[in-house]
């Protein structure tokens, strides 16, 4: 059910506002995420990136404004509802339960079942088989789905999170770039997943800290600063250096430089 024709709007935010403890974590945010496009969300810590992810993935309900999916306003009652609607997320912490087996992790919250209540039970064979197939697709073949997630390597755990999101994300994929440091290989897997999802016509939202990486893969760039949209740019508008400068906090960095130089004149000589 992916919105096949590239360019149609899959997710849209209209005057979206979220308050957290009296502070506006997001304020009057307008944005569109289109099919077959990668939108990179950039901003400093505390700019509202995680809040945006939480709203898109159904973990947080907006206090103001609305979220539209395929042109219709939706209210995700939980993260389960968002996933059921085809919006899947790769979480910053990967959302992998360490003591659960690989397949239980893969289907956690959306397990396939058979039979009718009260005898409704997990469809173990289907779950195991799908897990193995989905993991093979992201480059981790031949894994024992009954191993606990702790027995996975860090990269395999990340692949598990990606494979799960690709499996459940029929319309949109939200990626909150993991905070844990990634190797080039792991970055490659993530980027491959992002690009193949775009080619399949999904709307892809990537939250990242790295403007050069964003410029490499992104089609559009949503800049957030203190909960506001500071810029909604396309590839044509910016090159990597501009993005870097915008991202690095522009004014703040200039102010910081001036202050430090006033305090330590020797810094001028560098």
């Amino acid at each position: 059910m992916s919105d096949a024709s590239a360019g149609t709007t899959v997710l849209e935010l209209r005057n979206l506002g979220v308050h957290r403890g009296g502070v506006a974590a997001l304020h009057r945010v307008n944005a569109t995420f289109r099919a077959g496009e990668i939108t990179c969300v950039l901003g400093e810590n505390g700019a509202g990136k995680s809040t945006l992810v939480a709203v898109l993935s159904g973990l947080l309900r907006p206090d103001e404004g609305e979220l539209l999916l395929g042109g219709r306003p939706v209210t995700f009652r939980s993260a389960r509802a968002a996933r059921a609607a085809g919006v899947a997320t790769v979480w910053e912490d990967l959302a992998v339960a360490p003591l659960l087996s690989v397949w239980r992790n893969f289907f956690l919250g959306a397990e396939p079942t058979r039979g009718v209540w009260p005898l409704r039970r997990l469809d173990l064979d289907a779950a195991r088989e799908t897990t193995v197939r989905a993991l093979a697709r992201v480059g981790v073949p031949g894994i024992d789905p009954d191993r606990p997630a702790t027995a996975l390597r860090a990269g395999e755990r990340q692949s598990l999170a990606i494979a799960r999101a690709l499996h459940f994300g029929a319309r949109a994929l939200v990626i909150d770039e993991p905070t844990a440091p990634m190797t080039i290989a792991q970055h490659t897997v993530l980027a491959e997943a992002v690009l193949s999802a775009r080619d399949e016509g999904l709307a892809v939202v990537v939250v990242t800290h790295n403007p050069r990486y964003a410029h490499l893969i992104g089609d559009r760039f949503l800049l957030l600063a203190r909960g506001h949209v500071a810029g909604d740019l396309t590839r044509k508008d910016v090159d990597a250096d501009v993005l870097l400068r915008l991202m690095a906090g522009g004014r703040e960095l200039t102010a910081l430089t001036a202050r430090l130089r006033a305090l330590h004149p020797e810094l001028d000589e560098r």
């Binding site: 159904g58 959302a95 659960l100 997990l122």
Partner: peptide, 24 residues
Amino acid sequence: RTRFGNAVFAVGGARQAARELGVA
């Protein structure tokens, strides 16, 4: 063998992950 059991394990072992995946 049930969804509920999976939720019990997940809620106890990784509450944040469970919440992020929409486990009640």
